[in-house]
Design a protein around this nucleic acid. Structure first.
Length: 823
RNA sequence: GGGCGGUUAGCUCAGCGGUAGAGCAUCCCGCUUACACCGGGAAGGUCGUCCGUUCGAAUCGGACAUCGCCCACCA
């Protein structure tokens, strides 16, 4: 070996791609391959990746998540578990469709012009083109996934899982179709689930409008924020016990502008305190009014089309956009003297999560999934502790939501996704589901293979498949078991399910985690609940924010490209930064300062290694032989009669090891990272290496050899502790250590376990004293200008025990003296 | 309207019952043959406010202030 050519500065760019490639080529992260290198098998440890959007690319949020997962995966793998981290991507229905539609728009095309088949082909083409961007990026970043098991939510096997789940829920009546009020996005032209609505407070106006009461000379005044919806009013309501209006109940009012007679009804829903105590009822355009309308059998007059323009039900306002209609309605009311007053009003409105367009509540025929029967066991599983949510406060959030859960609108008026496997009869309109869950490839796209041939009600052969696709989260909900082969009873499913862990951000706690728990409990054919849960522990990580503390996310434009950051600072340093800043519960504001300082840490490690290598060469040159410093040798033959600094460094190493293992058990990445950082830099480098320097060249060859062996022992252990955090650097250095290359990858070596016999409190106390002494002496010398140069610890260790004894006797006095600037 | 989280050194944040910590920035001294992406030293905080529990509180309880987030069908 020749180490003269080791660069002084660590250059991550020159080694990372190499190891990234080797790891994948050797399939080290395929559990069966890894197991061949390891004998004691501690059982399986598995995690199904939160699948990124297939057409997306990595942002810092991914990198944080993947770093946190990867640290635990590598740590457990080193501990001897058969670790499976199953990667894959999500077809991401609406997100992906929007991207392709945007591309079409550049060609001045719409998907409608293209037609459904051609549009789907375009999306598949786009997927083929950009679908493995994420994978390439993850491989480059060393993410230790088992790429031989990669999955995609729209591939045939997972399509089959979706069909199986849908058909079972459908047959049991848990999936139903009906006309209800849903959230409609006038831009995306699709229904959305409640979760996809973003509420935000806005300044608005409260308009007070007079409705004449028929057969009297007076009128009632209603208050509304959306006057244009009055075109669809079918009643006016008051509280049943409101004395002010009791006499009006049963009378009729004349709906202004539309000249329609509508009843005045009484309903508990009306609040006597708000507004005027009289409410206009628009069953087709407000969720509350919808309920009231159904209770009283009121007509539901939908006055808007899918673009939120007034339709033919809106009389003179037909064709106007909802906001234009509002202006005109107000102007007309004003002209007729029916607009009593306008007040400023602040309230929350709902917008489309995807495109931020204001949503329109709309009555629509959609598919729903009944939630209560699924939620009950999912609540139970968390409440009884079978599934642990960390940090604990999220458990309460989860339970609160689950206990007030509403039915889930699962149909989307999109073309990209799993099409609903139910056919409509063109003759009798009855519904007939696919006969089974088999999937076939038609035109390179997976489709249900067993379409019904005849209507199950009238026997007609004229059937049309429902045009809608399923909410993208429907397939995600099955992810932990669909990726392992369900509905088939596969070896992987038996081996790795339930998965050990799930790690994701709180933003998908309801969207995803809750639904995985419900579906796992529903579909896994095991008796015991503990065998059906999708994961045993759910760790909710914080979000990465940019310097302005803005949330980084797929839909916002402020994403930081991890590849750019890692290019500048190195993947290991970036990972370390994310880990050491990842205290549970608080968000991370990524800063260049921190990245720089942990790049310096990587450099420090590199140079400590460089010191070892260079001086080992010098030793060989001087003595014509090498001390045996391979891990095999030092583990067999560490001497018992070590001196103070040796006993001290082993004691500190043992402490670091113990704390790191405990911290990682509890997802306290920051604590683990702090411990190894401090140990490596400020104990191993600043004190220990300085201390042993003289010994390494001791005239007594045996003394020198022991020093070398201890030095490498500690360094080797430190590299292993560091490996989950800095896989590239440690892998590179491990391979350069004498005798290590032939042992294979560091990722398959043992992670250091706690060795309590190494803890040595006495050595730590003595060492603290010595360190004080050295610092004091250095200060005194510097201040007295006895010697311009500062002295390394080793000088004291080897030559000046008498000074130490003196110091021991007069510690306080010397320390005081040392700090006197008067000297 | 409910719920959650933050408020600690100039900046960004750890600590969460026993004499205030890190990184960066600042000041002083050192280019000692691993590393100036370095080494040594120093300065800097009555831990948002008030009340309480305790021998003892940044750390536990309560109130308040302030910032942020999540959930929510009062038009």
């Amino acid at each position: 070996m020749k180490h003269d050519d080791i660069p002084k500065a660590y250059e991550p760019g020159s080694i990372e791609p190499h190891w990234a490639r080797v790891w994948v080529e050797e399939k080290l992260f395929t559990p069966e391959v890894a197991a061949r290198h390891r004998t004691p098998d501690k059982g399986t440890y598995s995690l199904a990746i939160p699948p990124p959007n297939v057409t997306g690319s990595l942002h810092m949020g991914h990198m944080l998540e993947h770093t946190q997962i990867d640290i635990l995966m590598r740590w457990r793998r080193m501990q001897g578990y058969r670790v499976l981290w199953l990667p894959g991507t999500d077809h991401a229905g609406i997100a992906t469709q929007v991207i392709v539609e945007r591309q079409l728009a550049e060609e001045k095309l719409t998907r409608q012009q293209l037609g459904r088949d051609e549009f789907e082909r375009r999306v598949w083409a786009w997927k083929a083109e950009s679908g493995d961007t994420i994978k390439k990026q993850m491989v480059r970043l060393g993410t230790s996934c088992d790429w031989t098991r990669e999955r995609f939510t729209l591939e045939p096997a997972l399509y089959q899982a979706v069909l199986e789940a849908f058909l079972r829920l459908y047959r049991e009546g848990l999936i139903y179709r009906g006309r209800y009020m849903i959230n409609w996005c006038p831009r995306c032209h699709t229904a959305l689930s409640d979760l996809e609505v973003e509420h935000s407070e806005r300044e608005a106006k409260l308009y007070y409008i007079k409705y004449p009461v028929l057969g009297t000379e007076y009128s009632v005044t209603v208050a509304t924020t959306r006057p244009e919806t009055m075109l669809g009013d079918t009643a006016v309501a008051v509280h049943p016990e409101d004395e002010r209006f009791r006499h009006l109940v049963g009378k009729r009012a004349l709906l202004p502008l539309m000249k329609r007679e509508i009843p005045i009804i009484a309903d508990e829903y009306v609040s006597r305190e708000f507004g005027t105590g009289v409410v206009k009822i628009t069953p087709a355009h407000d969720p509350n009014d919808f309920e009231v309308g159904r209770r009283h059998g009121l007509p539901e007059i939908d006055v808007m089309d899918n673009e939120a323009r007034i339709n033919e039900q809106g009389g003179a306002y037909r064709g106007l956009d909802r906001f234009a209609a509002r202006k005109k309605v107000l102007a007309d009311l004003e002209a007729q003297g029916l607009l009593e007053k306008v007040e400023p009003y602040r309230h929350a409105v709902g917008a489309c999560q995807r495109c931020k367009t204001l949503l329109e509540p709309k009555i629509s025929e959609q598919w729903f999934c009944q939630m209560e029967p699924l939620a009950k066991p999912a609540i139970e599983a968390v409440r009884c502790g079978l599934i642990k949510i960390v940090p604990e406060n999220w458990e309460k959030v989860y339970l609160d939501w689950m206990e007030r859960i509403h039915d889930w609108c699962i149909s989307r008026q999109l073309w990209w996704g799993h099409r609903i496997p139910v056919w409509h009869c063109n003759d009798c309109r009855a519904l007939t589901p696919a006969r089974d869950s088999r999937v076939e490839m038609v035109d390179a796209r997976p489709q249900p293979a067993s379409a019904p041939e005849t209507c199950q009600q009238c026997g007609s052969r004229r059937l049309t498949q429902d045009p809608d696709v399923l909410d993208t989260w429907f397939s995600s909900a099955l992810w932990p078991f669909s990726t392992l082969g369900w509905p088939d009873d596969t070896a992987d499913l038996r081996d790795f399910y339930p998965t050990t862990l799930m790690i994701n951000g709180f933003d998908i706690l309801f969207f995803w985690d809750a639904r995985m728990i419900m579906t796992g409990l529903k579909f896994i054919p095991q008796e015991a609940m503990e065998a059906r849960i999708p994961f045993r522990t759910l760790y909710i990580h914080a979000l990465v924010r940019d310097a302005e503390r803005q949330k980084m996310s797929k839909t916002r434009g402020n994403v930081l490209d991890p590849l750019v950051v890692t290019e500048e600072y190195g993947t290991d340093a970036t990972r370390f930064t994310l880990a050491i800043m990842a205290a549970p519960g608080s968000d991370i504001a990524l800063s260049a300062d921190r990245l720089r300082s942990y790049r310096a840490f990587a450099n420090k490690i590199w140079n400590a290694a460089r010191f070892l290598f260079i001086n080992l060469e010098k030793f060989e040159a001087a003595h014509g032989e090498l001390p045996d410093v391979s891990p095999l040798a030092w583990r067999m033959a560490l001497p018992l009669d070590l001196d103070l600094a040796d006993r001290w460094i082993f004691s500190r190493l043992e402490r670091a090891t113990g704390v790191m293992n405990l911290a990682l058990e509890g997802f306290r990445y920051h604590e683990a990272a702090h411990v190894i950082y401090h140990f490596f830099w400020h104990e191993f480098c600043d004190w220990y290496i300085e201390w042993v320097k003289p010994k390494l060249t001791d005239e007594n060859l045996e003394v020198a050899k022991v020093a070398w062996r201890v030095l490498f022992a500690v360094f080797d252990e430190a590299l292993r502790l560091l490996h989950p955090f800095m896989p590239f650097l440690t892998e590179e250095l491990w391979h350069r250590l004498p005798g290590c290359a032939q042992l294979g990858s560091i990722s398959l070596q043992d992670f250091p376990l706690s060795r309590p016999e190494w803890a040595n409190y006495q050595a730590e106390q003595e060492m603290a004293l010595v360190q004080d002494a050295i610092v004091a002496l250095r200060n005194i010398r510097a201040k007295m200008k006895i010697d311009a140069r500062h002295h390394v610890p080793g000088e004291l260790a080897t030559s000046d025990q008498a000074v130490l004894a003196l110091f021991r006797g007069h510690r306080q006095a010397i320390l005081r003296l040392a700090n006197l600037s008067a000297l």
